[in-house]
Amino acid sequence: MHALALLAACVTVVGAIMVITRRVAVHAVLYLVVTLLALATVLVMLGASFAAMLEIIIYAGAIMVLFVFVIMMLNLGQPDSAREKEWLRPRAWLGPGVLATIVCAELLYCTSPLSGAAPVPAAITVHDVGADLFGRYVLVVELVSYLLLAGLVSAFYIGRNRAGGR
């Protein structure tokens, strides 16, 4: 079991290094998705499966889609033919593919009933998290809702259409 933990941690770190060293932004987003998936694996091994699911759904799902949309909107230079040649070259997708294959193989190995993966003892379940979140920390939840509202308003204000003149 410790080899799997080491593998997930290594994929996380290598993916993070790849994120900050890529030159093309979309490649970095691919590596960042792999990094977040590997980090979700680490969270599962810590016994926090709820946090891992949130990591996959919100981080690797929603926030990364936001990044991809913005990168698509920015359209940073690069004529189309050169860009498509870049897509077709294996070097562009080989790295994320290999790392994602490692994570996927680890997932398959862990879910296989023959591997005899012991259940994590005394994992913290969603019930505990929810009871804490809406019991002791209900004021913090309200504050976070204000933070989200402030973020929504400021993003709308910054990104509003100025074509009509000020």
């Binding site: 926030i63 804490d132 976070v144 989200l148 402030a150 973020g151 990104g159």
Partner: peptide
């Protein structure tokens, strides 16, 4: 369970930070 409560809060914070930062970049 407080650790995962803090994880949820950090997730919300990261979402807000990313949204506002990307809005500034687009602007």
């Amino acid at each position: 369970a407080t650790g995962q409560v803090m994880f949820v809060l950090i997730l919300a914070l990261a979402a807000v930070e990313t949204a506002v930062g990307l809005a500034i970049i687009v602007c």
